[in-house]
Amino acid sequence: MNKALISIGTNVNREANLALCHKLLNGTFSEITYSNTSITTPYGNTYKDDFLNQLAFVYTSEAKEEVHKRLKSIEKKIGRNATDKVNGKVKIDIDLVIWNEEVLKPDDMERSYIVDLLPSLID
């Protein structure tokens, strides 16, 4: 069984988009555990609105590439598109951060939303 840490963020219709994300993730993965949530100020100059963030552990027998495809498919179902990002809007962002013991996004591991939320998720 593979264990993946995913990060979830949204700065548009935050509560509704996070709830829809949960529904789609729960329908995709039979085993998933969510962290608490947090509100963070955006990184960089592109984004203006604060983000609602959450982490989750996903347990799956699927390959890393398939899990990545499923996460990107969920983003599209929620309405994520490239033009929104240019305008500083993120309906949903779901990233694969850790796959088993492999850290895929080492820079993200230092971001406040991961540092702050990870302790509420440790199993």
Rank of each mutant, 00 (worst) to 15 (best):
M1V: 14
A4M: 06
A4G: 08
A4K: 03
A4E: 04
L5E: 07
I6F: 01
I8T: 12
T10N: 01
N11C: 03
N13Y: 10
N13V: 00
R14W: 05
E15N: 11
N17K: 06
N17D: 04
N17I: 02
L20P: 00
H22I: 11
G27N: 15
T28I: 03
Y34V: 13
S35W: 02
N36W: 02
S38H: 00
S38Y: 03
T40Y: 09
T41L: 07
T41E: 14
P42W: 01
P42F: 02
P42Q: 04
P42S: 06
N45F: 13
T46L: 14
Y47R: 02
K48E: 01
K48G: 01
L55N: 08
A56Y: 02
Y59R: 12
T60R: 05
K64L: 09
E65F: 00
E66G: 05
E66N: 14
E66H: 10
V67F: 00
R70L: 15
K72H: 07
K77I: 07
G79K: 06
R80N: 06
N81P: 01
N81E: 07
T83D: 13
K85R: 10
K85F: 12
K85G: 05
N87C: 10
N87D: 12
G88C: 05
V90S: 11
V90F: 03
K91E: 05
I92H: 02
I92E: 02
D93N: 05
D93I: 01
D95F: 01
W99Y: 08
W99C: 13
N100S: 03
E102G: 06
L104C: 11
P106H: 05
P106N: 04
D107C: 00
M109I: 05
E110A: 08
V115Q: 09
V115E: 00
D116T: 15
D116Q: 15
P119Y: 04
S120H: 08
I122S: 10
D123L: 12
